[in-house]
Simulated assay, not measured.
Amino acid sequence: MRSRFRSDRRLTVRMTVTMFLLGLLYVAFVVALIVVLKSWLLVVGLLAMMFVAQFWFSDKIAMFAMRGRVVGPVEYPELHAVVDRLCALADMPKPVVAVSTMGMPNAFATGRNPENAVVCVTTGLLDRLEPAELEGVLAHELSHVAHKDVAVITIASFLGVIAGLIVRFAFYSQLFGGRKDQNTAVIFAAVMGVSAAVYALSFLLIRALSRYRELAADRAAALLTGRPSALASALTKVTGDLARIPTKDLRTAQAFNAFYFTPATGKEPGIERIFSTHPSLEQRLEQLGRISTELGEPVEPGKAG
């Protein structure tokens, strides 16, 4: 079933190209591991099991890590009312609604498809935003669900996660595994080299896709609600509040940056922008400003430039 979120061909093309390139990389990775480890059954079986586990349980993993819990309309009537209104407007299935007790203002969507999706907001976000701002954030997250890019990012990130785990395992095995013969050392070095290269390439591909999907979700949310200024206000408010949170308090959350409404970095990226999961605040606000002009959105009193 297609939703009323405006289709984004550029997003679809980028997701398709990224998945194709990651697919080639995945095949090369598997072949390299089979050659090095000399056991295709071990490699294919292990990777297949881990892929299924990540794809089917990614929502539960994210919810557990972010201390999210499913909430009903009785407990959070206003939150459910906004989600109900947006889902009716977008003509899409209503996702499971969850709340995280974290003070960090943020939101994320997860799930393998629109019928098995979860949209979660933190209490820190609920405490800070006005109703129109919250609507913009939730429309942004629902756009991720409708465009299926949550599932794409989950699948795409699998290769990097596995490669990263293998690098760590090989490194610590070398560090604490005692003396090894020369052949074993060569195998470990080969596995680490291949995994490190795969991790680096998948990392860059996913980051490039992630930045564009955030701009696409901002655009879709602004067009659905017709209030890009409310989304811009939410972005400015949340980013400013995150900047005041100590970095050490954000570290646990940073592993899930690709899924957040705005990254838990505590600062705007500088030279490291190429490695960021999100475009800069300036890029996002500039796009929303253009959409506001195109829609002829009235300027609120006191906000004229």
Rank of each mutant, 00 (worst) to 15 (best):
Y76F: 12
K180L: 14
V82A: 08
V191T: 01
R112L: 11
F108V: 04
D59H: 13
I61F: 07
A185P: 03
A217P: 05
V118D: 06
K237G: 01
M104Y: 14
R67S: 08
G124F: 11
A230V: 02
M66K: 07
A88Q: 02
R273S: 13
L281R: 12
V191Q: 02
K237M: 01
E141G: 09
V152F: 09
I153T: 13
A304W: 06
L129Y: 07
C87S: 07
A81D: 00
R227V: 11
P95W: 03
V70Q: 12
L46F: 15
D181C: 01
S210V: 04
A151Q: 08
R168C: 10
A117R: 03
A117I: 04
V52P: 10
L47D: 06
A230F: 01
V121K: 02
G72P: 11
P114G: 05
F64W: 08
I34Y: 10
Q287K: 12
F29N: 08
T277F: 13
K38H: 14
M192D: 13
Y26S: 12
Q287P: 07
A196G: 10
F55A: 15
E130R: 09
A258K: 00
L46T: 15
L250W: 04
E282G: 12
V13Q: 00
V97F: 03
S233P: 05
L204W: 00
I274N: 01
E297I: 09
I153N: 12
A139E: 02
R290G: 02
G226R: 04
I291S: 08
F169M: 04
L42V: 12
V30E: 04
D84E: 11
L41A: 14
Y76R: 10
Q254I: 05
S229N: 08
N183F: 12
E78F: 10
T123D: 05
E133W: 10
D149Q: 06
F158I: 00
P114W: 03
R227I: 10
S195A: 09
F188K: 11
M49W: 15
R219I: 09
S292A: 15
G45R: 02
M66E: 11
L215H: 07
V17F: 08
S58N: 14
V70F: 11
V137N: 05
G305V: 13
M1Y: 10
Y260D: 04
F57W: 15
V35A: 14
L25M: 11
T12H: 15
A264I: 11
R244T: 05
R2P: 00
F20A: 13
A255P: 09
P228T: 00
Y199K: 15
T293F: 11
P93Y: 03
T236E: 11
R4S: 08
F169Y: 08
P105L: 13
K180H: 14
T12Y: 15
L46M: 15
A234L: 04
